[in-house]
């Protein structure tokens, strides 16, 4: 075939010609592969160390006596330095209240976000209505809202409506912040479930809501878990809203509460904070280990 053999007249063997001019500059394959492997393993070790060291530092110091911490840097709580007393901080009335409040707010937010995102996501995926596209853009805009931009106005609004210093007030605010992402994710996810499945349920005589509950709902489990995780991360984490919307010491959640202790109290030391920090890290750690594929799935929907 003349088309492919037109450089037949050129010099060099067939192999050289085939491999082209570019391949000669290269390092040999085994060299490249070991460089790459070395780079990967080295990077992994370095990054792993950077990620893990602060956690390790928190954990080991949670088991140290105050004396041992004040004595300076040490690597493990051994001998006299070891104590479990630090965990007694949970019995400190204030800290217990903060944690309880955090748990209430987190659970409330997760439930509300999951419920609303399901209904809204289903509506967006299955019903056409005017302004659907505009609404989608609007969801996107939700990302631009700074917590501060929302929280400052909400402070006075909540004050007037009596929601200031209530769990409900914070749950509503946090849900509103999680909602754009949650609705978007659910919307995209439900779109991947073929409508034919529902239609076959309708033909079997199921009303629309039965179709939703029996056919759609069970299949959205991954998206529900992803949404719940994101809402959990947001609520468990939230500092800004809680600080502004729950100014009272009795109502506030863990993050602003503990910061008050850090800045105000001289009775509690780093060991106590590390101990309570360790306790608060355990749920995220468990989620991270067991549910990471769901989190990743949430991001995979590329919910913008």
């Amino acid at each position: 075939m003349s088309t492919l053999d037109d450089d037949e007249s050129g010099t060099g063997t067939a192999t050289e010609r085939r491999r082209g001019p570019g391949l000669t500059r290269r390092l040999s394959y085994p060299v490249r592969r070991s460089v790459l492997r070395l780079g990967t393993v080295g990077s992994a070790l370095l990054l792993g160390f950077l990620m893990a060291f602060p956690l390790y530092w928190m954990a080991q110091n949670a088991f140290k006596t105050r004396l041992a911490i004040n004595a300076g840097v040490s690597w493990l709580p051994t001998g006299d330095a070891f104590t479990l007393e630090r965990f007694g901080i949970v019995n400190n009335g204030a800290v217990l209240t903060y944690i309880t409040n955090s748990i209430i707010v987190t659970i409330g937010t997760v439930l509300l976000v999951v419920a609303v995102s399901l209904v809204a996501g289903y509506g967006l995926a299955r019903y056409d209505f005017r302004g659907k596209v505009a609404f989608a853009r609007f969801l996107l805009l939700g990302y631009l809202f700074s917590p501060i931009v929302l929280a400052l106005p909400l402070y006075l609004i909540w004050d007037w409506t009596g929601l200031l210093n209530t769990h409900i007030g914070l749950i509503l605010a946090l849900s509103a912040v999680s909602m754009p992402f949650a609705v978007w994710l659910m919307w995209k996810y439900i779109q991947t479930i073929p409508q034919a499945m529902e239609e076959s349920a309708w033909i079997a005589g199921a009303p629309r809501w039965r179709g939703f509950v029996d056919v759609v709902l069970p299949q959205t489990t991954p998206a529900i878990i992803a949404n719940a995780l994101f809402a959990f991360g947001l609520a468990w984490n939230d500092f800004t809203f809680a600080q502004i919307l729950l100014p009272s010491n009795d109502a506030t959640t863990f993050p602003p509460g503990i910061l008050r202790l850090v800045n105000a109290s001289f009775e509690t030391g780093y060991g106590d904070f590390m101990a309570v920090g360790l306790l608060m890290t355990i749920p995220p750690l468990l989620f991270a280990f067991f549910l990471q594929s769901y989190l990743l799935k949430g991001f995979e929907i590329r919910a913008l």
Binding site: L55, W57, P255, P284, L285, Q292
Partner: peptide, 25 residues
């Protein structure tokens, strides 16, 4: 799995705890 657990942990860990650790360190 180990490294990605660390990654997701630091995603889910409350900011205040990062702060506490940072202040301490």
């Amino acid at each position: 799995r180990l490294l990605s657990t660390l990654v997701f942990t630091s995603y889910l860990i409350p900011t205040i705890i990062v702060t506490l650790i940072a202040l301490f360190m």
